[in-house]
């Protein structure tokens, strides 16, 4: 996993740090963070990310719009993407997965779960 870059898109400062900590457990992984969809759009082309983790409800563009963009773009289409959200309803999950998200985590969850899932995808 050396040199793997992970992008975390989350507008809550404290949550962002928590997510980052869960990923940084993995050795050699570099974490990048964005506080909004716009910032994510700016960071995306600058690095080759091995994993994107995004919240849904954010200012400017929402997470679904970001996922739609990523999954339809030939440059990023292959990048695994996790949704991290408080929306636990069936229809929200369906929608996220339909747009191409790989995992759907409903807050709150154990940070170990995120670490484990990230490890699995980064090893591929």
């Amino acid at each position: 996993m050396d040199g793997c870059k992970v992008l975390i898109v989350e507008d809550s400062r404290a949550t962002r740090e928590l997510l980052a900590a869960a990923i940084e457990v993995l050795e050699g992984v570099e974490v990048y963070t964005a506080v909004s969809g716009f910032e994510a759009l700016k960071v995306l082309p600058r690095h080759r990310f091995a994993l994107i983790i995004t919240d849904i409800n954010m200012p400017d563009i929402n997470g679904l719009e970001l996922i739609n963009f990523v999954k339809k773009n030939p440059h990023y289409r292959q990048t695994p993407l996790f949704i991290v959200t408080t929306e636990g309803r069936e229809q929200d999950r369906d929608r996220g997965l339909q747009l191409g998200a790989d995992e759907y985590l409903v807050k709150p969850f154990q940070s170990e779960l995120l670490t484990a899932l990230a490890r699995r995808y980064l090893k591929r």
């Binding site: 404290a14 919240d55 409800n57 807050k107």
Partner: peptide
């Protein structure tokens, strides 16, 4: 709405 939503998510993450 977003403020309430953020608070919900944030508090849930922190137990």
């Amino acid at each position: 709405f977003r403020a309430a939503h953020s608070l919900k998510g944030l508090s849930a993450m922190f137990g």
